[in-house]
């Protein structure tokens, strides 16, 4: 591949990322504020009011225990929502055609949209982190684990959102998965409790939930404790990212939901 092609692709990729950033900032009331408000409410209600009764969870202060989970919840929700709604919107309003007619290869289009989702996930995650620091303090046990876990999680859910955006035929189908699949998975994914509190069958069931592994790996980075094997957790995240990228690319190549 010649350097001029590589440079052209790089500019194209940057353009998608810049456009996504522009969108996130332009409609910040929809992209950034809701998750910040939700997280603050969780901290007030679960942390301050109910948390005082709970005391400790897995040997740490309850507020501290839920903080990594709430950050992760924001990252998951926002990465997913950004890509699914932005991609679907581009398809719906047809301006995705601007990219489809250009020489940008499919894999780069996927990466561009995923990049946008990752950036929003991380941005909102940072906002929620700052809010959580108002209520509690967070030790840093292993900084690399923190960054790797949050990044991989954002990538996985951006890719999932991309696939949702490809298949969606209307806005209901963009909202369906987050409401009926993503939210339950995160609520049962060890954000608010350690699965050691659960009966054995529910513990085994929880291990099938990828979000449990992501949240625990992330929490391990801060608090040094986890309900799951952290190495296994990373293997699951990498595996999911690779598989979802493969699916997204195949859909793009076939033009599923995009070309007649």
């Amino acid at each position: 591949m010649s350097t001029s092609v590589a440079r052209a692709r790089w500019i194209g990729f940057q353009t998608i990322i810049l456009r996504e950033c522009g969108r996130i900032l332009r409609i910040w009331g929809q992209t950034i504020v809701p998750s910040a408000v939700t997280a603050a409410l969780y901290f007030v209600i679960f942390g301050t009011l109910i948390g005082r009764r709970i005391g400790q969870m897995d040997g740490v202060d309850y507020m501290q225990y839920i903080a990594p989970g709430l950050i992760m919840m924001a990252v998951i929700t926002n990465a997913y929502a950004n890509v699914s709604s932005s991609f679907f919107g581009a398809k719906f309003q047809r301006f995705l055609e601007e990219i489809s007619v250009s020489p940008l290869p499919d894999w780069l289009v996927v990466l561009g949209y995923v990049g946008g989702g990752v950036l929003r996930g991380l941005l909102v995650g940072l906002v929620v982190t700052i809010i959580s620091l108002v209520f509690t303090h967070l030790p840093v046990h292993h900084v690399l684990v923190i960054f790797a876990a949050v990044l991989l999680t954002a990538v996985v859910f951006s890719l999932a959102g991309f696939i949702n955006g490809v298949f969606a035929k209307n806005f209901d189908q963009v909202n369906w998965i987050p409401t009926f699949i993503l939210t339950p998975l995160t609520y049962f994914g060890g954000v608010f409790y350690s699965i050691n509190l659960l009966p054995p069958w529910a513990q085994s069931l929880s291990h099938a939930n990828p979000v449990l592994h992501m949240v625990n790996a992330f929490r391990y980075g801060f608090l040094g404790r986890s309900d799951v094997d952290v190495v296994l957790a990373f293997a699951i995240m990498v595996g999911a990212a690779v598989a979802l990228f493969g699916i997204a690319l195949t859909l793009m190549r076939r033009g599923t939901g995009l070309r007649d």
Partner: peptide, 8 residues
């Protein structure tokens, strides 16, 4: 942006 997609 359109120019960007074409690598300009």
């Amino acid at each position: 942006n359109q120019a960007g997609f074409y690598g300009i």
